[in-house]
Amino acid sequence: MELLKVQELNKSYPSFHLEDVSFSLEKGYIMGFIGMNGAGKTTTLKSILNMVHADSGYIEIMGKEFKSHELELKQDIGVMLGDMDFYVKKRVKTLTEVVKRFYTHWDDTIYATYCDRFNIDEEKRLCELSTGMRTKYALTLALSHQARLFILDEPTSGLDPAARDELLEIFQQLVEDGQKSVLFSTHITSDLEKYADFITYIHEGKIITSTTKDEFIDSYAIIKGTLPQLTDELKELMISYKKNDFGFSGLMKTNDHSHDIESDYTSERPTLEDIMIYYAKRGRTHA
C-alpha cells in the first residue's frame, strides 16, 4: 500500500518551476529525497503538505486525497521542516503540553518511553538542546501522536557524523514494523548510500528518477578514458564530463553506453554524490 502518492505537481515562481513532480512511497520504507540546494526539495515537501499552494497536482496520503482530508491526515503525519527553531526559550515540557492537545491519538506512555530512550530532559529549554536532540524531540512528538508517515526536511543537516548515524538508525527502527514510512530530504548523500530503500532525485524542479536506491545507482556509470577517446558522439551520450590534462571522466546512463562500449574505457559504479555532481555540471554548461 502506498502511504504517499504525489502526481504531477506543478508550481511556478518567477525564477523557479516545479515541473510535473510525481513519485510515491510505499508503506514500510525509507525514501531519500535528494537534490542540490535550490532544486525544489523544500517546495515539493511544502506543496505535499499544502503549505505551499501548488498550481496543479494531486496528493494522496494513506489512500485519501490530501487537500480534502488535510486535518484528519495531518494527525497521522509527523512533520519536521528544517531545524526545530520555534519557541526555543520554552521548556520542552511546556511545548509538549501544548502540542499533545492537538492530537487525538497522543500516547503519554510512548512519549515517556522515547524521552527516556533519547535522554530528552523535559525541564530544558529548546535552545539548550543540541540540533540532534531537537530532531530527536521532534521525532518523539511525532511518534507519540502515532504518526505513520514522517516527512522531514533536511533532518540530518547540522548534525555531526555520529548524530547523523544515530538518527538514521532510528529511521530504520521506525520502519522495521513495516507500517511506517520516512520521506526525508537531504543533500548529504552519504547518509543514504547505505540505509535508504528508495531514492527520489530532483534536479532543477524536475524529478530525474524515483526508484530503489540500487536501481538508481546501477542505472548510471562513470566512464573514464583518455582524451583521444573523448569523441563528439561520446560527449553527446554523457550527462556531463570533466577533462583534465590526462583524460576525462563522465557520467552516463548505463543503457546508453552498454551497446558500444570499448573495452579500454574504465567504467565505475558511481556514488549518489557523483550522480548529483555531474547533473549539476550539466546544468551549468547547458545554462
Binding site: 514500510g28 538508525e169 530504520q172 527502527q173 547505505k194 540505509y195 530503500d197 528508495f198 530503489t212 540500487d214
Partner: peptide, 9 residues
C-alpha cells in the same frame, strides 16, 4: 536490514 544497517530492498 536494521541490524546490518542496509536498506530493506
Amino acid at each position: 536490514a536494521k541490524e546490518l544497517r542496509v536498506s530493506i530492498i
